[in-house]
Simulated scan of single mutants.
Amino acid sequence: MREIDPTLRAIAAAAVGGTLVVWWPAFTLGAYNAVFFDNVLTLWAVATAVLLSGAILRRRGSVPWGGWVALLLPSIWIVLAAATPKSHGFPYLHYAEALLTLVGAPMLTWLLSRILVPDYAALPVFQRLGAVAATIIVGVLAFLLGKFNYLFLTCADFDVSGNNSPAHCAHGQPFHRR
């Protein structure tokens, strides 16, 4: 096998990192019309780890100012969720958490790629944006897979995996028994 192109390695590493964060929230938004709290908390954990790493370094320019804002968004969501009354609910908080997850994941992809993938900064802008675009495309596709889950999954598939069945799933045996 010949050597893998370093450009492909950098773009793929960035795209894979982003899609690992965005695919499940996008799928659940499609299947259940909700982003689950554990998805938002995963985004929070990753963002906070990078935020704290930058704070520990305490060097000017270690994280661009827009990066600090992006990294603080999940913590802001948690503060808003904690400050809102639980008895009356806050209907727009759900939309904020969905937006945070689906928009924050590509931003985190870009930021983490700059930090964790050594060859990423050397790539032309078009190729760097390609990794973010791949993350967004996978997110949209995951949403559509969730929305149309009944075409390839059954309610039993969700049950076997430990998830609740979405309202529009197909009845039948789980996939592994077919």
Rank of each mutant, 00 (worst) to 15 (best):
P118R: 13
T7C: 09
V40R: 02
Y150T: 03
F143P: 00
L129F: 14
G172P: 07
G89C: 10
I76K: 05
A49K: 02
Y150W: 06
T48V: 09
F126V: 14
L145E: 04
H171S: 15
R9L: 13
A121V: 09
A133N: 02
F36V: 08
A10M: 10
L51T: 02
V160M: 09
V50N: 03
N149C: 10
S62H: 05
N164H: 05
W68H: 07
R59F: 08
L141Q: 06
C169A: 12
A131H: 02
S87A: 15
V63L: 15
A134M: 12
W110H: 08
S53I: 00
T135S: 02
S87K: 09
L129A: 11
R60S: 14
L123Y: 07
R177K: 15
C155A: 15
A82F: 15
L80N: 05
T7M: 14
A167P: 02
L116T: 05
E3W: 01
I56V: 14
F175P: 01
T101N: 07
V69S: 13
L116D: 10
P74Q: 14
A70T: 11
V63N: 04
A83I: 00
T154S: 15
F158Y: 13
V117N: 05
V125W: 05
G146H: 02
T19K: 01
H94W: 08
M1T: 00
V40L: 14
G61Y: 07
T7Q: 14
L102M: 08
G89K: 05
P85I: 08
T135H: 01
W24K: 11
T48K: 05
A170L: 12
Y120R: 01
L108C: 08
L112C: 05
F148E: 09
A15Y: 02
A31K: 00
H176T: 04
I136A: 11
T19H: 05
P85N: 14
V125P: 01
R178G: 12
T19V: 10
V16P: 00
H88A: 14
A83K: 02
E3V: 03
W65S: 10
